[in-house]
Computed example of a mutant assay.
Amino acid sequence: MTSHAGGPPAQAEAPAPRHHQLIVSLFGLYARRHGGALQVAAIISLMQDIGVEPAGTRSSISRLKKRGVIDSVAVNGRSGYALASSVIETFIEGDERIFHPRRATATDRWLLATFTVPESQRNIRHKIRSSLIRMGFGSVTPGLWIAPGHLREEVLAHFDQHGLNEYLEFFMADHVGGADLHRNIDSWWDLPALDALYSDFLLNNAGLLASWRETDASITDPAADARAFADYLVLITQWRRLPYLDPGLPIAFLPADWNALGAERLFQELHALLSPRAERHAGRVIDAGLAGA
């Protein structure tokens, strides 16, 4: 991602998110605030603000439609797209994970999951295992999975929504003795890989925070808002997977130099700085398209 001339730099060293990932973030952030759908022209214009050519945007839109993430709709008589009804609940859950993450304490309970699937339904087994991983569960054994207890309602709702409850059993549990939880958590989750992701996030975005702190937020500047939008969309796309990979594990059981807390603070500061400016810019572009329809 290249720097923006005349303003705070974007995350130049960060691996550039894929176009379809950025579009998913765009819908998650702004479509629901503007009637649930976006005109194609607005999507293309906003993606151009972060250097994505129209052909790349159209190709990614087509891919997301085939995957069932978005549906074709008319927006004020023009071509547009809206989030598919099947994924809206997932986006609502994502709001909590991304913007209001919870971190368990050493005394909190754990959520255990086990499932039984007939050999003839391997596709169901894969779907359940993939969902458990995506929601942040660690694997104790091939048949027993564990997550912080505060995920209980989100997890139960997810598997009920997808019609998979008949294969699963869930339990709330306390750790009352046995092996050292520090050692076990390190084996149930890939902590070194997760810590490296947090470290990368800190490295890639610390300079961005310093630059935007020097910008006067009280001055309304459309050009600065456009730069903020570009930086914010990339920031959200980089960050949004981390609260799923780390389901809020207790700090007491994690390494002393765990990078998660610093990364969470950095994200929240950047979110506070960039979100209002980014919203203004996105609103201008989306509203201009609607007014011209």
Rank of each mutant, 00 (worst) to 15 (best):
A147V: 08
A5Y: 11
Q11K: 06
E96K: 09
A288I: 01
A196L: 08
P192I: 15
S120R: 13
D180I: 08
R277D: 03
S72M: 10
A84H: 10
G207F: 04
V285R: 01
F253V: 07
L83I: 07
G51K: 05
P142T: 13
W189E: 10
N204R: 06
R152T: 07
F201G: 02
A104Q: 04
V117C: 07
L111K: 01
M1T: 15
P118T: 13
F27D: 02
D257E: 13
A256M: 11
F137G: 03
A147I: 00
A41D: 09
L164T: 03
A157I: 05
R280W: 04
S79I: 07
R240C: 06
Q268W: 00
T114G: 11
L151Y: 12
S199H: 09
A14C: 09
D160S: 12
I133E: 00
S79E: 13
F171Q: 03
I61V: 11
G207H: 04
R122D: 06
A84S: 15
V75T: 13
G6L: 13
D216A: 12
Q238K: 14
G207A: 11
L22R: 01
A74K: 08
L181F: 09
P222K: 11
S62F: 13
G80I: 00
T105Q: 12
W212H: 05
F267S: 03
G35H: 08
T114Q: 08
S25T: 04
F159R: 04
I44V: 13
I50L: 14
M135H: 03
S45T: 13
G163E: 07
H20E: 12
S72D: 15
A106H: 14
R125P: 06
R67Y: 15
A193K: 14
L144S: 09
A82W: 11
L22C: 10
P276F: 02
V285Y: 01
L111N: 05
Y244V: 07
L270T: 07
N123F: 13
E154M: 11
S275K: 07
S218C: 10
R67G: 14
L274N: 01
G138L: 02
Y232C: 01
F267Y: 04
A224N: 10
S62I: 10
Y30H: 04
H150K: 10
N259P: 04
D190T: 03
T105I: 09
A282R: 02
Q39F: 10
R58A: 07
E154W: 05
L273E: 00
R183H: 09
R18N: 10
A226V: 10
I219V: 15
L202G: 04
A278F: 01
E89I: 12
A210T: 15
S60P: 08
H20M: 07
R33H: 00
S120T: 15
P222Q: 14
L274A: 02
S199L: 12
L233Q: 02
R102I: 15
V140W: 02
S60C: 12
Q268F: 02
W212C: 00
G35C: 13
I286A: 03
T105R: 14
E269G: 04
L197I: 12
G289A: 02
G143T: 11
G177D: 00
E279S: 15
A82S: 15
W239G: 05
M172N: 13
L164S: 06
H162L: 11
